[in-house]
């Protein structure tokens, strides 16, 4: 069963059709990759699915039943959805530990006022920060981290949420091999745990290795879909990537 589906989803930015009547489905418990050249609408799709920008047309269907023409960003968590950002959005002038705690603690205005964080929250934060090797840096400000560490902190934040559906917007881009391996392993572990991953990626080897299914976008439209081996061998897909 698809956990998220889009039906004729549409978004334009003055004249540019960033996502153009796109109908795709992301199966529960699978890793689905979305590939396509720069500017093909991948990040826009993720932003639409997480309520970061308003939908211009079409529908988003969550868990087969809840239909949206608009979804508010603060509601996506209630549907078990979380994400990372292509441009790595951390809470810069906050310690590494607080960057993680903030996604664990009480969401309500009053409840959060009478809470600091529970031992459970701290335990969970320690677990995910150790997983990405940042526990030692927990008291440093996020803005002091290296590019790779920043991406790892975003992954840790996502792990802490315990969301069932995780959208990763280019999580491997710019990572050195050791860090790359950490993130790849985490993706595999998440799949074993039954999580649904939506992966935006350019690295073809990683896509072959990780994906159950892939969608290829070009100029906001669906160009191809299917199993990675067959899709990535198609001449039109290769051409879209290499340009004219």
């Amino acid at each position: 069963m698809p956990i998220i589906e889009t039906k004729h989803l549409y978004k334009h930015f003055d004249g540019v059709r960033a996502v153009d009547h796109l109908s795709v489905a992301f199966e529960k418990g699978q890793i689905t990759s979305v590939v396509g050249p720069n500017g093909s609408g991948k990040s826009t799709l993720v932003n639409l699915l997480t309520g970061m920008i308003p939908v211009d047309g079409g529908e988003i269907v969550v868990a087969g039943s809840v239909r949206f023409t608009k979804i508010k960003s603060h509601e996506v968590k209630d549907y078990g959805i979380t994400r990372t950002f292509q441009d790595v959005r951390l809470f810069e002038q906050m310690p590494v530990l607080d960057n993680v705690l903030v996604v664990l603690t009480e969401r309500g205005v009053f409840a959060s006022l009478f809470e600091k964080h529970s031992p459970y929250h701290l335990e969970k934060a320690e677990e995910v920060l150790r997983r990405v090797g940042l526990w030692g840096k927990r008291h440093e400000l996020a803005l002091g981290l290296s590019y790779g560490q920043r991406k790892l902190l975003e992954i840790a934040r996502v792990l802490a949420t315990d969301a069932d559906t995780i959208l990763l917007d280019e999580p491997f881009a710019g990572l050195f091999p050791e860090m790359l391996k950490v993130v790849v392993d985490i993706c595999k572990e998440l799949k074993v745990k039954g999580k649904t991953l939506i992966l935006i990626e350019h690295n073809m080897d990683l896509i072959r290795e990780l994906s159950d299914h892939i969608y290829v976008l070009d100029a906001g439209k669906l160009l191809a879909e299917g199993k990675p081996q067959s899709v990535l061998a198609r001449r039109d897909v290769i051409e879209a990537y290499l340009g004219e």
């Binding site: 603060h74 996506v76 994400r83 809470f91």
Partner: peptide, 12 residues
């Protein structure tokens, strides 16, 4: 630090 990012984690 980032109003939009924090909202995605479930904060109104």
């Amino acid at each position: 630090e980032d109003e939009k990012a924090v909202s995605v984690f479930g904060y109104e």
